[in-house]
Design a protein around this nucleic acid. Structure first.
Length: 294
DNA sequence: CCGCGGGCCTGAGAGC
DNA sequence: TGCTCTCAGGCCCGCG
């Protein structure tokens, strides 16, 4: 599911009930998600105050008073729900939301703020891991992540440089978290459309040959990425299947998709007259307008 | 080192 | 109704 805008939406939703609150009880309701939970997973969380909740790429990172950091990844179908009144969901009593299937509620944090924070993930591609903050540089999950697309260091020059020697398509390069960290299939398609760049174009064409300076294309792509991510965050992310804000509301950026999931529709560019097409690149669907994306 | 395809899971929807 | 097939916001791993 979630790309940067969805993860950021979740972070903002969790923040009020997590930051400054203590984890009174942590429940891991099965032995694994994508990976087995660490043996001391629960022990390292219970009793800890959450000093801050941050985000790096598609990871949520809760800073604990102990000096540990809780890393959380939503995979494809992970979501968090905040229930304000913990009384209804005392351990062993799963009647807290009538008529809802709680089969995939895998982790629950009972917070001193009175909130219960529930992680639900049907496909279990998500995962959680507690690491020491002072070892964060060595964490394999985070090592090699490229720049934050909304951060200062991500600009046309940097994008051009990291694409310069790539042998792959621009679409695949933007999905590569080492190039830029946080984009996924939706926002790559949308950003390429907005920049009028073909997903099939070689990534290396974003840099001038020899000098490696950014082309006009690279200069167009960076603001396109900024815009689509910022607008999606504003809209609470995109809800296609699983994504929900932490209060249960849907995100609504899916209504603003120009090409993603719009195969066969008319290209939204005024005067273009093209049709949105779909094809497969590296095993993922690409949506684009061949007429105005070059 | 790099790029690609397979695999990890469940569930929704289409077609028969 | 139900079966089978495809597809889905991600990413690790092993292969060539």
């Amino acid at each position: 599911m979630p790309e940067l805008p969805e993860v950021e939406t979740v972070r903002r939703g969790l923040q009020p009930s997590m930051e400054g609150a203590k984890i009174l009880k942590a429940e891991a309701r099965r032995k694994d998600l994508r990976f087995p939970f660490q043996k001391d997973f629960v022990a390292r969380l219970e009793g800890q105050t959450v000093a801050g909740l941050g985000r790096r790429a598609k990871y949520l990172m809760a800073d604990l008073a102990s000096g540990d950091v809780l890393l959380m990844h939503l995979g494809m179908s992970g979501s968090f729900r905040v229930l304000k009144d913990d009384d209804n969901i005392a351990p062993g009593h799963f009647h807290y939301e009538r008529n809802q299937d709680r089969t995939h509620d895998h982790v629950i944090f009972h917070m001193s703020s009175g909130a219960a924070i529930i992680f639900n993930d049907p496909r279990r591609f998500g995962y959680m891991k507690v690491i020491a903050r002072n070892a964060i540089e060595d964490e394999p999950l985070l090592k090699g992540l490229g720049p934050e697309p909304l951060g200062n260091e991500f600009d046309a020059a940097m994008l051009a440089r990291s694409c310069a020697n790539k042998k792959t398509s621009l679409k695949a390069a933007l999905l590569d978290q080492r190039v830029v960290a946080g984009l996924g299939n939706i926002y790559v398609c949308e950003a390429l459309f907005r920049a009028r760049l073909s997903p099939r174009r070689l990534a290396a064409t974003l840099a001038m040959k020899k000098t490696g300076e950014p082309t006009e294309h690279a200069k167009r792509l960076v603001p396109a990425i900024h815009d689509v991510l910022n607008q999606a965050i504003q809209a609470g992310g995109s809800s296609l299947r699983d994504h929900r804000q932490t209060n249960g509301d849907l995100g609504y950026f899916q209504h603003s998709f120009q090409v993603y999931d719009r195969e066969g529709e008319k290209c939204p560019t005024p005067g273009c007259g093209g049709t949105v097409k779909r094809f497969t690149q590296n095993g993922r669907s690409t949506f684009w307008c061949p007429k105005c994306q070059k």
